[in-house]
């Protein structure tokens, strides 16, 4: 039983190592994405369209607003869960 578990773990580790080595060999050079048309559009037009100097904020809150809405929903659910779990009882 223990041998089988060790074998499975070693196989998974070997597969992970192979994928990691291949991806690190075939990685893009830093700062040179393969398709940069969307980046160029946002960099050249974000300041004019949204009026914000910070292009990252204009992407997060304007171009990709739905992602921020989902992130806010995740935070809201987490806080609701924690307060439901640790809430003070009324009868104490």
């Amino acid at each position: 039983m223990k041998n089988a578990r060790n074998l499975i773990a070693a196989t998974a580790l070997a597969i992970c190592a192979v994928f990691l080595i291949f991806s690190s060999i075939m990685m893009h050079p830093f700062g040179k994405p393969s398709d940069s048309s969307m980046d160029d559009y946002i960099i050249s037009n974000a300041q004019n369209e949204t009026g914000a100097n910070n292009a990252v904020t204009s992407v997060v809150f304007d171009y990709r607003g739905f992602d921020t809405l989902a992130e806010a929903t995740v935070l809201f659910t987490a806080v609701a869960g924690v307060i439901m779990l640790f809430r003070r009882e009324k009868h104490e």
Partner: peptide, 15 residues
């Protein structure tokens, strides 16, 4: 500047 973005920043920050 930036229209709705500061107001959205304020509401998300409060949250």
């Amino acid at each position: 500047t930036a229209g709705l973005l500061p107001l959205m920043n304020l509401s998300v920050g409060l949250k």
